[in-house]
Simulated assay, not measured.
Amino acid sequence: MSENAIISIRPKFVQAIVSGVKTVEVRRRIPPIEVGTNLWIYATLPIGAVVAVAVAAQIFRGSPDELWSSHGHNAGIAKEDFDSYFQGTSAGIGIELALVREIFPVPIKHLRSMRVGFNPPQVIAKITSAEARFLEDFSRFV
């Protein structure tokens, strides 16, 4: 059975993921996920809801230069912004997103009924299979 996690992403990047322009999510911190993990995409404020789900098809680790040269064209970010984001770090991660599906938004108030005290993760937070079923049941695919 696949693992499940919620990942927080800014709305402009969520739109790029849903539209297929952005297929690699880059991160400074290496989240504890594996290939095949279902990533429930939480669009940060002003949206404040889980709005899509994708599968972590591949995970790439390397220096910012290595990540840019091999995956920058799929990261949906300008080189200057990429460099600024990775400034001061020697390693990062790229997560190839596949099977992206937009879902009916699951707002924060419903996420808090899924898990008492739920707060959107800074990076990625694992969720249980029961919590993933809650998201699946709540949302209808559009």
Rank of each mutant, 00 (worst) to 15 (best):
D83S: 05
V51C: 00
I108R: 14
I41R: 03
F13E: 07
K22N: 03
E102Y: 04
L97N: 02
I9A: 00
P46W: 12
V142P: 15
T89Q: 00
D65E: 14
E131W: 13
L97Q: 03
A49N: 06
V142F: 02
F104G: 13
E102D: 00
S113M: 15
G20A: 08
V21M: 05
G92Q: 07
P120V: 08
I124A: 08
E3W: 08
A52I: 10
G88H: 02
P46T: 09
P31K: 01
S19H: 10
D83F: 06
A75F: 05
R28T: 01
S139Q: 09
E66R: 15
P120M: 12
P64Q: 10
K126L: 15
D83I: 09
P31L: 01
Q58P: 10
E66Q: 14
S19F: 00
K109I: 14
E66Y: 14
N119V: 14
H110Q: 06
S90Y: 03
L39F: 04
N38L: 11
L67P: 15
F118R: 02
S113R: 15
S113H: 12
V116M: 10
V26T: 08
S19R: 06
K109G: 12
E25W: 04
I30F: 02
L67T: 07
P64F: 03
W40G: 01
I93D: 09
E80W: 07
R101N: 04
R27S: 06
S63R: 13
W68M: 11
E131C: 13
A98C: 01
T37F: 03
V21P: 00
A91Q: 09
V26L: 07
V21Y: 00
G48W: 12
L97R: 03
R10N: 07
G76K: 02
R112T: 00
P32V: 02
E136H: 12
L111P: 14
A98L: 03
I47D: 07
P46K: 11
R115A: 13
Q58M: 10
H71A: 08
A56R: 03
S84Q: 11
G117Y: 07
P32T: 01
V142H: 01
E66D: 15
F86P: 04
A98R: 09
A91W: 00
D81M: 04
M1P: 12
I9R: 05
A91K: 01
I17Q: 01
I93C: 09
E34P: 00
L111T: 13
L99T: 02
L39Q: 10
V116P: 15
S129E: 15
G88I: 04
V106F: 02
D65V: 12
R10Q: 12
R61M: 09
G88D: 00
W40S: 00
L97P: 05
A91T: 05
V100Q: 05
F60E: 13
Q87K: 15
R27E: 02
G48C: 03
A57K: 13
T44W: 03
Q122A: 11
T44F: 08
D83Y: 12
E131H: 14
V100Y: 06
P121T: 13
Q58H: 14
E96L: 10
S113A: 14
A125H: 10
S63G: 07
P11S: 06
P105Q: 06
G20N: 09
D81W: 05
D65T: 13
V123D: 10
R140I: 11
H71R: 13
I93S: 10
I108G: 12
G36P: 09
S70H: 04
T37C: 04
S113N: 14
V51A: 04
K126N: 07
G36C: 06
Q58C: 14
I30P: 04
